[in-house]
Simulated assay, not measured.
Amino acid sequence: MLVDLSGKTALVTGSTQGIGAAIAAGLARAGARVAVNGRTAESVDKAVDRLTQEHPGVPFLRAPGDISTDQGLAQVFDAVPQADILVNNLGVFGTEPALEISDDEWRRYFEVNVLTAVRMIRHYLPGMKDGSWGRVLNIASDSALVTPAEMIHYGMSKTALLAVSRGFAKEAAGSGVTVNSVIAGPTHTGGVEDFVYDLVDRSLPWDEAQREFMIKHRPQSLLQRLIEPEEIANMVVYLSSPLASATTGGAVRVDGGYVDSIVP
């Protein structure tokens, strides 16, 4: 299948590293003008320099700003007034015993993982509807469906994101704009490496640590390994394309078979 996003402008939040950076690269390779977002101008410049080296000839836009703040949102909106493709990838995660999660942490996870996506959609969706074309993708997690005991505040936020996606898909009904969630399974990123070592012996080499983590903490994975960020990006690029015009209001899984369900 040929995915051609020429002439489209995409904004990927939290895209200076990990899954976000892989998504930015994938969309750019498909022809989109991709805006890279991170909290600071320095982090965005560093990411764009790296992406440009890895993908010569592919232009990237810069959209620095901490979108969990009003000031950061305004910075991003100024840098990218309109977008054809919005990928809400920004998120925080971490382990915490259930009874020790403070009110402030509950609020922080909701505000960063859910409310930032709502605010971004609220800004960009009207322009997409006016142009009769657009793609909104919210990066969710297997934790939305299989709440992890070690981070239920994170699971809660990702479950809420599924509802946000479904609701805004209804708002966009009949407009040519699609809104979907992407349920990412356990994925190999720098942050996840730290998370894995929080749960297994830190003296283990990475390959052994990953294997022990999957066996002990994610045994239901049918892939039996961590997913690579590019594998998540491949699904996002497809869903961002005209080829996915009939897929909306859905929660599409790239979870390595982690969620034990025959229903997508």
Results as ranks from 00 to 15, higher is better:
S43W: 06
T52E: 02
V34W: 02
V34N: 02
I67M: 14
A83R: 02
R33K: 12
A24F: 14
G18S: 11
E42R: 15
Q53N: 11
V80A: 04
L90F: 07
D66I: 06
L27V: 06
G72M: 10
G31P: 04
A79L: 12
R39T: 12
M1G: 11
L90W: 02
G14I: 07
L2Y: 04
G7P: 10
D84R: 01
V76H: 06
Q75Y: 07
S15G: 12
V44G: 06
N89S: 05
S43M: 09
E42G: 12
V92A: 13
G26F: 01
V58T: 13
D49M: 06
V34R: 01
T40D: 10
M1K: 08
G91L: 07
V58L: 12
D70E: 15
A25S: 15
Q53V: 10
V92C: 10
P56K: 12
A30T: 06
D78E: 15
A24T: 11
A30H: 02
G65L: 03
I23V: 13
A25T: 08
A41P: 09
P59D: 00
V76Q: 03
M1W: 03
E42T: 11
G14D: 03
K8E: 05
S6G: 11
V48G: 10
L11I: 08
F77N: 03
L5D: 01
V80M: 05
Q53D: 07
F60S: 09
I67S: 08
K8C: 07
A47V: 05
G57V: 12
S68A: 15
L51R: 04
R62M: 06
E42N: 11
D84E: 06
D45C: 07
A21Y: 02
P59W: 09
L90T: 08
I85Q: 00
L2T: 12
V48M: 04
D4Q: 06
A25F: 02
F60M: 10
G65M: 04
T16H: 13
V80H: 00
D66P: 03
D78F: 09
Q82Y: 15
R39P: 04
F60E: 05
L73Y: 12
K46R: 14
T69N: 10
V34K: 00
G72W: 07
Q53E: 12
R62D: 07
T40Q: 13
D49R: 14
L51S: 09
G31H: 08
G14C: 11
V48H: 06
R33A: 04
D66Q: 09
Q75P: 03
S15N: 08
G26P: 03
V92P: 01
K8V: 02
Q75I: 00
G18R: 11
G91C: 13
T69K: 13
L61D: 07
D70S: 14
A21P: 00
V44R: 02
T40E: 11
V58M: 05
V87N: 01
G20H: 07
L86F: 02
F60A: 06
N37L: 10
A24Q: 09
T40R: 15
A74P: 03
I23M: 05
A24V: 05
H55E: 10
G18Y: 12
A63V: 11
S68R: 06
L61G: 09
V3R: 09
R29H: 01
A30L: 08
A35H: 08
A22L: 10
D78R: 15
A74Q: 15
V58Q: 05
A35R: 01
V92E: 11
A24C: 13
N89I: 01
P59Y: 12
G57Y: 13
A83P: 03
G65H: 03
I67T: 08
D84W: 00
A25K: 02
